[in-house]
């Protein structure tokens, strides 16, 4: 298909989105990631039944935490797609990239630079 997705994306593979914890997302953002995007299977199609539902709830929890510390909650997002749907993955990646570019760099980044 020779599809492309933004070079800003760093993919971390996990066995199921249900494995991704609030702590993992927060650590990524704390260390300077501009955004965290969880892409799980379609709702109702999780091989482990509820993994993607759990992931969605955790993303919502992260969004609440980000709001509480005055960081835009949109930096954490959840998407669902079928594993064979490459074009949709590309579309979601573009969408996430665009959203983050609008928000600008993660404020944690400047803190880390000044500390270094």
């Amino acid at each position: 298909m020779r599809l492309t997705y933004p070079t800003s994306f760093r993919i971390i593979r996990v066995p199921c989105t249900g494995k991704v914890d609030v702590q993992h997302m927060l650590r990524a953002l704390e260390k300077g990631a501009d955004g965290v995007c969880i892409i799980g299977c379609m709702e109702g199609e999780c091989a482990y039944k509820t993994g993607n539902y759990r992931a969605r709830k955790r993303v919502e929890q992260v969004q609440r935490i980000l709001k509480a510390v005055d960081i835009d909650p949109e930096r954490a997002q959840m998407y669902n797609l079928s594993s064979s749907d490459g074009p949709l993955f590309g579309k979601y990646a573009e969408e996430m990239d665009e959203r983050i570019r609008k928000l600008g760099p993660n404020p944690m980044k400047s803190v880390q630079k000044s500390a270094a």
Binding site: Q23, L26, I65, L66, A68, V69, M108, V111
Partner: peptide
Amino acid sequence: VGVLASTLRMYFANH
């Protein structure tokens, strides 16, 4: 503990 510590670190850094 990890979640709360991360949250507080982000709060302090952002303020």
